[in-house]
Amino acid sequence: MFEDVESFYAMCKKQLIYMARYPINFITSFAIVFIIILMVILATTLFIGKEETNYSFNAIAIYGMILFMFLSDTLWTIGYNIRWEQVQGTLEALYLTPASKFASLISRVTISIVWTGLNCIAAVIFVYYVFGALPFKNLIFSTIVLILTLSGTFGFGFCFAAFTLYLKESANLAANVLQFVFMILCAMFFPFSVLPDSVLKISKLIPLSYGVDLFRSSLMGYPEGFPELLPVNQEFLIILLFGIITPALGYLLYRKAEKKVRTDGSLGMY
């Protein structure tokens, strides 16, 4: 156990050193968030008449964006990092060490999740001061929903990492496609009510949609019509199961994929 914690710490440190060597990455990730927010809000203002102001739409877009950033981060950092180790030729070497595979996976996302968290806080402060007050209600409950949803997205990340071992170079493409598919299907920048019925049916099959819905509805203090998909307790139950089952399932899938590529001898191949 202690060895696992130690190897996790060492891997996190290695990730941090690697990130610190590319400082422009740090700066640009902050800047991109502000630019995207500005673009979304400027685009929204074109549809609003001069006399209308409705801050809840800023809240919908910003709170959705927070989950989008975490999802995107999880997909890229867990899955694509595995790919990067393949490209660098260090993946097989890593597997020859007796270090915990789970720690190896988690360490990839820990540093960047902290960084994304800081980005999100900065984004919320930016919108709060530039575009006006954002509702911050039910903070404790919203945080629990966020943590459970994040845990679920970790599961997605593990599944994607498993997928990466098979897909190789196409993993990059798959991560890109997936993040945009989830962005639309999980209505991350707009309410579910604007989705066409056929798309909404698919959205309701994705547990992450309930995470998005409940997270922003609770932060907005459940205005009329929110949450949009199901009552609060039912949505919470789905998110709870999503947060517990998906990481376990994802990790199981990853171990299976890993075993398969090790048996095939294609672990380091790219």
Partner: peptide, 17 residues
């Protein structure tokens, strides 16, 4: 990708107005 990009402001606009 451009279809997803275009969908975002279109759907947001529909929600707003």
């Amino acid at each position: 990708l451009p279809i997803f990009l275009a969908a975002m402001p279109i759907l947001l606009g529909r929600a707003v107005a």
